[in-house]
Design a protein around this nucleic acid. Sequence first.
DNA 1: CTGAAAGCGCTTACAG
DNA 2: CTGAAAGCGCTTACAG
Lengths: 366, 366
Amino acid sequence: MGARVTRKPADEQPVRRRTTLHDVAARAGVSAATVSRVLNGTYRVSAETQSRVRRAAEELDYVVNAQARSLVASSSGLVAVLVTDITAPFYNRIAKGLAEQVTAEGRVCILSTPQSGDLDGELATITTLRQQSPEAIVLVGGVHESPDYRKRIDGLAHSLDAEGSRLVLCGRPSPTKDTPATVVEYDGEAGAFAITSHLLSAGHERILFLGGGAGSTTTNPRVRGYRRALEAYGTTPDPALIAHGSSTRVFGYEEMTRILASGTPDFTAVFASDDLAASGVLAALRGHGLRVPDDISVVGFDDTPVALDTVPSLTTVHVPMEEIGRTAIQLALHRHEADFRNAQHAVLGTHITVRDSVRPLVHKRT
Amino acid sequence: MGARVTRKPADEQPVRRRTTLHDVAARAGVSAATVSRVLNGTYRVSAETQSRVRRAAEELDYVVNAQARSLVASSSGLVAVLVTDITAPFYNRIAKGLAEQVTAEGRVCILSTPQSGDLDGELATITTLRQQSPEAIVLVGGVHESPDYRKRIDGLAHSLDAEGSRLVLCGRPSPTKDTPATVVEYDGEAGAFAITSHLLSAGHERILFLGGGAGSTTTNPRVRGYRRALEAYGTTPDPALIAHGSSTRVFGYEEMTRILASGTPDFTAVFASDDLAASGVLAALRGHGLRVPDDISVVGFDDTPVALDTVPSLTTVHVPMEEIGRTAIQLALHRHEADFRNAQHAVLGTHITVRDSVRPLVHKRT
DNA sequence: CTGAAAGCGCTTACAG
DNA sequence: CTGAAAGCGCTTACAG
């Protein structure tokens, strides 16, 4: 292996040079300015000169230097995206929408995956990315909002604004009313309200809410929707039926197992904070010999692919993840246009997707 | 919504300027050169000057302009990654390893998600990325190798090499023996051999191989390993037991359904081309009233999270996805160092992960 | 239609 | 230890 021949002694990098505008100009017998004009198609240039230039560029395998260009263009053509976990279905679908729209807008996407929950680390990463002069910096996913967080993110938004760049929040609320940022959220509360109502109308009044970080901007609306639905139904939410932790398969499994071990369930349905947690809940119930939906109904949130692979398939709330990403880029990049100037805060709708994990309580087999 | 106040008339972008080295120099009362030296810590500078400069930089919220720096540095600090589908677990795990290692190496990651299977599109994307002067361009995942493909990728590798950049192939073989590229593969053939042998030793001799693009660099080694194992066992592989298509859940489901509809299965086990296809196969078998593993055994490939959510959980081949990504970046970025110069082609090992989807045929319940 | 020149924001020999 | 100056590769008024 590694039969590659190196042309230089140890640890020394071979000297290479990239083809430059002047190389093309020299070969075509014109000035650098002319080459630039031909390749950018900006000014009119005689047909003959054009073809000479294009041929020379092709022959020399010329590729423009984006760094040099953006130095003079005052716009880098770069958009930076921060996602904590690109392996999480919820995040990578948003990231897909972001990346595709960035490309569609003729920009290039920078990706960074900072440690989750580490505000200092995240801000340090952002500083590194700011060096690249991105036209926008996109933060993806919910957070635990502290006053410190709010202040610093608001400060960041103002810094970027002052540089002509833009802070974009994706699936995360604005830190303050006046933060100069593009914000694209989804209506988590409405989704939670709808799916809780779905359970209620199937006869489930004792519903365990399991998972999600207490106080996170992702979990809060879901719990609010859950509570509101119970209240609208005339039930008082029981604080004992809320078990926070995190939105992972492992947490769903372990917490559900712990709860089952502590006695007979005093609930007939579980509202998991997301599909991942739901898949853990399903595994725990199965391990405990409980059938879903016959013995207990379970719902998730997000409508990610795992909802199809669980047995039974999962009734869940659909979140338009790719659209969140696409919309965020559109709004941010076109924010100076009349149509978008006053539409810098979008809240996308959600809806229930009914599958096989809920059964009407009145029909329960015995 | 959108209460943001803009300060300029319609469609006009507010004029903004970023803090520059000279701004810092002016405020600190030193030359730009000195500011540069302080901030980079390259030369020695008096302690007092240092603190004056640092303070000025802080007060002005100065962030260095990476474009300007890389123009003179002859190294951009950028690494470009091309992944067709960032929502596929196999790819996004490799991408995670890549992104994290890029950061660990002090570089910034550019991400692009070109259309899969479209060679022209992929090459066009690469041209765009080349403009950014990346230190390396990473191509992730298998392809259908045609002579045309080989020639063009080899040409690309030489172009990048001539510019001092590097082509990196991740989970994809080198197009030619002498292509100047960094290649990190995994031993798919060994994994397929092992899991097929696992099935054989459980008494399964009629094994359906289902999924995967015929002739793709991902599928080929898996089929080779499957065949070799059968032959090593003294069985002649039956071409009728290979059903290619693609490696998706949908294909696994539809193809398995089609096969079941056409008569009694003449196989006792299914080797799906990957976990996604396997999850579709499981759903089809369940839909057909067949129990896994009691009636039919099923195995997957890759060891992605879905293997835990299927019922039963999936026996599969573990591929070190994140490590592939990390290794690729390490090898590429350190290729001029003595330790790595002759190690530009790595093949990482795979192993079986045994779960619940295989049952010894001799113990089959009736 | 085309070229010479200035300048984008940095870094780095070259002088002191 | 510090500054003036050149130059990285482009684009774009400014002249012709």
